[in-house]
Write a protein that binds this DNA or RNA. Sequence first.
RNA 1: GGGGGCGUAGUGUAGUGGUUAACACGCCGGCCUGUCAAGCCGGAGAUCGCGGGUUCGAAUCCCGUCGCUCCCGCCA
Length: 598
Amino acid sequence: MLKTHTCGELRTGHAGQRVTLAGWVNRRREHGGLIFIDLRDRWGITQVVVDASRTPEAHALALRVRGEYVLQVEGVVQVRAPEAVNPDMPTGEIEVQAERITILNPARTPPIEIAGEHEANEEVRMRYRYLDLRRARMQRNLILRHQVTLYIRNFLSERGFVEIETPILFKSTPEGARDYLVPSRLHPGKFYALPQSPQQLKQLLMVAGYERYFQIARCFRDEDQRGDRQPEFTQLDLEMSFVEREDILNLIEELMTRLIEDVSDKRLVTRPFPRLSYAEALERFGTDRPDVRFGLELTDVSDIVARSEFRVFTGTVEAGGKVRALVAPGCAEYSRRQIGELEDIARDAGAKGLATVAVRADGTLRSPLAKFFSEDVMAELIAAVEATPGDLILMVADTPSLVNEALSALRVELARRLNLVDPDEMSFCWILDFPLFEWNEEENRWDPSHHMFTSPRPEDTPLLDTDPGAVLSQQYDLVCNGYEVAGGSIRIHNREIQEKVFALIGLDVEDARERFGHLLDAFEYGAPPHGGIAAGLDRLVMLMAGEPNIREVIAFPKTQRAADLMASAPSEVDPEQLEELHICICLDKKPAGSGKGS
RNA sequence: GGGGGCGUAGUGUAGUGGUUAACACGCCGGCCUGUCAAGCCGGAGAUCGCGGGUUCGAAUCCCGUCGCUCCCGCCA
């Protein structure tokens, strides 16, 4: 080893010891005959002192040293004088008196500040990701990520789970997200697909008798990006045999609870995790992934406002729509402009407008709607939403789904404005009892709302024949701080039910064989009852690290346009490579020069 | 596919039609033996993302384009 100690471990107890450190120059302070070098490695920073009067050779070398040079320093640990102690550093009570310095490698001035406080923009950070990753923030995040995966592996292994790798080169199934395709050299004109998740494979592992499987699995989806979505991402994927919903929920709840408590500095506020039905989540929060760190719940006021003279409301209710309300506490004196900003949010979500009633501190009302409401109806409305003086009532009238979208967006924005969100809190909740199907207007058929192997609740199976829209499933989602962090289900293992589901989603037996033959065959050879869940590891680590997007917890993420700015991927390839793969490029007729036809 | 924000020295920003494009950090040089975001003095560094247009004159206005980002669609 080129070092005897790390830059984070020396303390007063090491005083007098001869040590060798190696690392990067975090900062250098030159005082003529005395030079201070803050030497940094993965474990910390230690101050090195070079004294011209004691070690002229080392001092001469230190004069040439610059930021991010890679050094090896041999010297003696000495306790600092009391007035020279730096209480902000773990190693601040000691320093290393350098006797010999070796420049292991010089460094160009980096394009981004590694020790400084200026955050470079993402383009520069991505282009020089290896420098970005040198910064404390990224080191902390990636080390946390390692601790999380290690914890998960140990936790599951202790409970009898086996980690099994599944193929990255697999079969395209045109359900769900767009596949990333890989051309086959040996099979001209044919393609592999990168897995969107190991869903089918883990079910096959249950048929294979492993009973408890998990994998930290890379997944690929060729869809547009978001702050919490990358083209390749990582799932904690697991599946169990001979289990019921309750078993999976308890396992994951224990894992999450202990994981957060043991490896993060976040606080868990909701334990046990609250359980909401899908219907209840929409009713109370307007979304199936509510942030439950704060209240601001919605109230249905359709029946009350139907008795007003306000035609937008009465008309909406008559047409089968809903009018729902959200109370913004203490916002009665919001300016016209502030209310306008809230209205813009509602409109962005698809609402046609935003109705407001301000209940002033003195009890008087300020509302464009006042003239359409009798005193009684208005009083009933205020009572129903439990508004108190100083509050602002926000109402949206439209179809239930549009009302929910607009109000849940407003709810999140208000929480932000009113500072109701504690960033150190992680609040989980389970969402249960999803509908098994969603009606697809365009195709005039039912779509699975999760996937086609999700089991209906046993008590609902008779409804498959009579009222498919009313069938609730054994799907469960785990939500944390408004993010969906895990989702899974108990699967169908009964052939008759599976065929009914296929029929309802318009998949005839032939199609099903074509796409899932291997799985259907397998199910005929003794498939145990089974179920599982997949958790978004990137999102989970993001929340634990307190980061605003998953790029901050991925070593080499891609940009919104799915590019790697450091390596310049994707890139063109040699014609010979294409020829070998039997591939012809056929670009759209677009203006030349972009090189990015589709 | 659509909508919003951003793009000015290495980095972060200011500058919204008129001298030589400003400030901080960083960088280079000098001074300095107790600093730790060291300090003081001096210096270099920008075809204002790119292309076109309007104008006597464009970082600034207009059109196009590229890149980063947020959101909608999309993501079973």
